[in-house]
Design a protein around this nucleic acid. Structure first.
Lengths: 232, 232
DNA sequence: CCTGACCGATTGGTAACACCTTTAGCAAAC
DNA sequence: GTTTGCTAAAGGTGTTACCAATCGGTCAGG
């Protein structure tokens, strides 16, 4: 998906290269080299460089050019950086980090949702859990739809957790949920235990029981974490 | 602390205004208005705008100008956005969100550190805990030094948790730790219970006991969370 | 009242320029 | 030989001027 706008295409390509390791830390770029390679004006190169700098991917210095920085200075929580890392090599490693982050955040988010979610959201959560159950019992159901429901549920919980910092992780979690099936990190067909836990979360949130919601979500992410830990 | 570079001064001021609510969502800026107000060239205004756009604070469209966006589109996990919000009104609200994020992340980070931290770090954690104990027993010790030790301990744990996403929160946590004493959200003199818990964390990490580390850290953040929940 | 064409405001992008900081290289002095 | 100091060039920083693309509102016409 080529970005329509010129400068963001440059940002994208360069971001991908740096986070992917094609441009190692210490490498030096110049505005001229960028504008030459991409066939864009210096101004566009400067704008691109400015956002890369904001993401901690490069540091710009006079007489020195744009120095590529190492991961320790990246804004690894920025959605763009996450997306780039999910594309390049180290994709599995990134998925692991993100999963651990989910492990940390989602139980508290579920508890928050039990306290703060509006009635409509609580109701929708019930619907989702019910539909998931139905799909699960139908045996080889529509994996596509199941994934969609799963994503929507986690999105709703994060978005209505009452903490905007948790909300900022919704897209990331969605990417993880989609990504792990794509990577075969997860049984394609839903696990019965997970089904029950999702129902438990929906019930607890609907009933406003924050502690039960937290425990149920802990069970879900624990399972996921275990699956990931067994990999390589 | 005025930023040396021109464009980042613009970014700072504008970022502060938007996150502080002085510029409400829907308000429209133009490059010309920016370059006029700050006395900078259009080019600089554009660079500033580009990073603001990357942070989700404004959306730029032709014939439309720069439209200020609401919090739901901000990159609330970006350190710059966090810093701005900690300065403006809503500072307490931001502190609350951040504290909840700590609550979510730090126990897992401590567990991770118990698994991954290098020997030097484990040793240093022991030193810190010991020094904190000494300061605490000395009664009215040096609050400044105590805070510094506290910050260093949490920094080390996050930085060596083995998860770079947790590591990205170090500065934030440091800001929270410093910020809450400044805001009087915390007893100036160390609580005995917290002292013991910090020692327990250090011991657990040194011994590689991930589960004990997690539990001890949970006790610490629970205490902090409770203190914050009692506010208004 | 609705529809569609037009016009202008404003960003997107380009080009060429002056300036200033920083670094590297070299020479001179100790 | 090592240190100090000068010099020159490289490359980001900031400015100005210009044209192209696009969207929003306005206004005319049905």
């Amino acid at each position: 998906m080529p970005t329509v706008v010129l400068h963001s295409a440059v940002v994208d390509t360069l971001g991908l290269r740096i986070t992917g390791g094609a441009l190692e830390p210490g490498r030096v770029l110049t505005l001229d080299s960028i504008s030459a390679e991409f066939g864009v004006s210096r101004t566009v190169a400067r704008e691109a460089m400015r956002v890369l700098e904001g993401l901690g991917l490069v540091r710009s210095g006079r007489r020195v050019g744009l120095v590529v920085l190492g991961m320790e200075s990246w804004q690894v929580l920025d959605p763009r950086v996450i997306a780039w890392r999910l594309q390049g090599p180290g994709r599995v490693e990134q998925l692991r980090s993100l999963t651990e982050m989910r492990h940390a955040v989602e139980p508290l988010a579920a508890a928050g949702a039990a306290r703060h979610a509006p009635a409509a959201v609580r109701a929708r959560l019930g619907e989702i859990a019910g539909r998931m159950r139905a799909l699960g019992e139908a045996g080889e159901g529509d994996h596509e739809e199941f994934l969609g429901l799963d994503v929507e549920m986690h999105e709703l919980l994060l978005r209505h957790s009452g903490n905007e910092l948790f909300g900022a992780l919704t897209d990331v979690v969605a990417a993880v949920l989609s990504g792990r099936t794509a990577l075969g990190l997860m049984p394609a067909s839903p696990v019965p235990g997970a089904l029950a836990q999702h129902e438990a979360v929906a019930r607890a949130v609907a009933g406003g029981d924050a502690d039960a919601a937290r425990r149920a979500m802990e069970a879900i992410v624990d399972e996921v974490q275990d699956a990931l830990d067994e990999l390589p």
